[in-house]
Amino acid sequence: MDQDRLERVRAGDGHAFAALTEPYRRELLVHCYRMLGSLTDAEDLLQETLLAAWRGLAGFEGRSSLRSWLYRIATNRCLNAMRAVNRRVPAEPTPPFQPPEPSRRGEITWLQPCPDALLDGIADTAPGPEARYQAAEAVELAFVAALQRMPPRQTAVLVLRDVLGFATDEVADILDTTPTAVKGALQRARAALDGERPPPRPGAAAERELGRRFAEAYTAADIDGLIALLTDDAWLAMPPAPHEYHGTDAIAAFLRASFAYRADRTSHLVPTRANGLPAYGTYLREPGAPAATPAGLLVLASTGDRVHAVTRFHLDTLYPRFGLPTRLD
């Protein structure tokens, strides 16, 4: 660590603090996102973390690395947020049409996508030797959603140990607990994630081609064409709406209702990337209107030559984070 810069921070130099913490900002944001499942909440918690670090740096004694110390602050801030009874959970939206009965009602309605641009060049793309998950795998939607179903402490232990690769003693220090407690929580967390790993993905070229065919069928409202691209056990989810549809018959029923509501409006899809997966910003244009407006972000997860999960996020305010325009002329 730059001791001179640290002393300047302790003397109140805000520019020195920014320079000292800048290398860790992006990885801390991704860490908060994994913990919370919400990009909006993660951004808020990152600001809380940096404010707490600024206020507490005078007491930093250097017994651990600055990175570990920042992770201690961020992790504990996230745990407080996850345990809070008033945690921000989005209101269930009212659908503009009558959807068919869902296969189930999902509980993780706060789940949000994460732009791939945020994942480029962060330090935890080279996790420690203790890690069991690749960085890309550890931001896929299925993995992040699975973390949200676990008790907060188990989520923290698993992310710190198996994703970031911190040693058991380091995790115990970050969470202010014992190595024995860390090992027990990790064992339970790993058991909870058994079977949750997504199936093998196709190669990049095959994934792009599958996405292209999906986009063409979607804009054409070709239900048969879309269903032909899905696995028999595919899932369709739509956070923050809790409605989830399982299997091609249930998904086809929903698409019929959705495309009937679209009627004669024109649909456009613009490609982007989210959580390491192909994604599309969808837009609808009213007849005679000069521009199309956002209508939800689609994220596709594939295996072999089929799509096994479609997640449509009704979060139009996040479009700029994915390099998507707020209107399509």
Rank of each mutant, 00 (worst) to 15 (best):
F322E: 04
L158S: 12
V159W: 10
Q154D: 12
L164T: 03
T282M: 07
R312I: 11
R153W: 15
R306S: 08
E196H: 10
P294I: 08
D222G: 12
N76Y: 07
D162W: 10
R188N: 15
R132N: 08
T219D: 05
G37S: 00
E7N: 05
A205M: 10
V310N: 06
A142T: 08
L269I: 11
L318D: 06
E48T: 09
T49P: 00
H246A: 12
R63M: 00
A217K: 10
L277I: 00
P95W: 15
R273G: 01
V30R: 12
G184E: 13
L318Y: 06
E170S: 13
P287G: 04
S302D: 00
A234D: 04
T125M: 02
G225H: 04
Q98W: 08
K183W: 03
G296E: 03
M150S: 05
W54V: 08
A84G: 09
A263I: 02
P100S: 12
R67T: 14
A172V: 11
R153K: 15
R55K: 15
P202F: 00
C32T: 06
Y71E: 08
A52M: 12
L51I: 11
V159D: 15
L284M: 03
R265I: 01
G288L: 03
R265V: 04
E61L: 11
D41S: 04
A279R: 07
F313W: 12
W235M: 10
P240W: 02
T180I: 13
I223N: 00
V299W: 01
L328P: 04
I108E: 07
D169T: 11
S38T: 06
A181W: 05
P294E: 11
R201L: 11
A16H: 03
R87T: 07
Y71N: 11
R25W: 03
V30F: 15
V30A: 15
A309S: 14
D2F: 04
G62Q: 00
V157H: 14
A204V: 12
P240Y: 07
T303D: 05
L51K: 03
E101H: 12
L50C: 06
A167E: 10
A205F: 00
D120S: 14
T311E: 05
D329G: 09
T266Y: 07
P320S: 13
A131M: 13
L186S: 13
G203E: 02
G195D: 08
Q187Y: 02
P115E: 12
